[in-house]
């Protein structure tokens, strides 16, 4: 019998705590596959955020640190500056990276830190029960925007990738999505490219934004969530390479 698919060694064989239809499991696998394909497990250090992915170290079988909310790029800076031979990546959600950690990601990018950032955007604070995030779409109902987000009151969805792409310190910014198999493959390619840049010693910060479903906080079925990404999210967060 021919093996067509197997679990990659850097991904643990374990049931995750993620909700049915959540995108984190897929994103974890793509990161784990990349680590194994690039053969960097012996020198990779991952940073887990505060958010649903805080327990990423339970699933990714690599050296990992858990850090304060939003501070991952600062922690990554401390690691990479003192260990230029290691491969450092942070895995952050949109609350972590686009709300409380805005200063840290902007300044890590602006200094051109040689780190890789996997930015999971599900337009909501998942772990705390579905509050508005800076990335929440106009009209989107959350526990803190019961009537839907209004631009006049809560501002517009924050496009972090566009913001970061204009900084000279970034070398690669791409926005991808997990809403179907084809796009998952694209996401894998982007994540791999982002890591490859760091492995090659390229100057600058590489970031892949991943649009990811959160059926629980969106109050949708997993299937409908994927459609919502395709139809609604990508209108505000257009897919594609923004830099590099």
């Amino acid at each position: 019998m021919k093996t067509v698919f197997k679990r990659t060694p850097s991904l643990r064989d374990r049931v995750t705590h993620y909700c049915p239809g959540c995108g984190h499991g897929i994103a974890h696998r793509l990161v784990a596959e990349t680590i194994d394909e690039l053969d960097i497990r012996s020198k990779v250090i991952g940073i887990a955020p505060v958010g649903c992915a805080v327990l990423a170290y339970d699933y990714l079988d690599i050296d990992m640190v858990e850090v304060a909310h939003g501070r991952a790029p600062a922690v990554a800076t401390g690691m990479k500056r003192t260990n230029p031979d290691k491969i450092i990546f942070s895995y952050q959600g949109d609350g972590d990276l686009a709300a409380i950690g805005t200063a840290e990601i902007i300044h890590a990018a602006h200094r051109g830190e040689q780190i890789t950032v996997i930015f999971i955007n599900n337009a909501v604070f998942g772990m705390t029960g579905g509050q508005m995030a800076p990335t929440t779409l106009i009209g989107q109902v959350t526990t803190t925007t019961p009537l839907g987000r209004e631009a006049d009151n809560q501002g517009w969805p924050l496009q972090m990738s566009e913001l970061l792409a204009v900084l000279p310190g970034t070398n690669y910014i791409e926005r991808c999505s997990l809403h179907d198999v084809g796009h998952i493959r694209e996401t894998k390619k982007a994540i791999k490219h982002a890591f490859e840049l760091q492995v090659s010693g390229a100057k600058g910060l590489s970031l892949v934004e991943v649009l990811s479903p959160c059926p629980t906080a969106w109050h949708m079925s997993p299937a409908k969530s994927l459609k919502w990404i395709e139809k609604e999210m990508t209108k505000v967060f257009p897919l594609g390479r923004l830099k590099g």
Partner: peptide, 10 residues
């Protein structure tokens, strides 16, 4: 905030 977290990372 960043400084102490850089210390944390190192």
């Amino acid at each position: 905030l960043a400084a102490i977290n850089m210390v944390y990372g190192a």
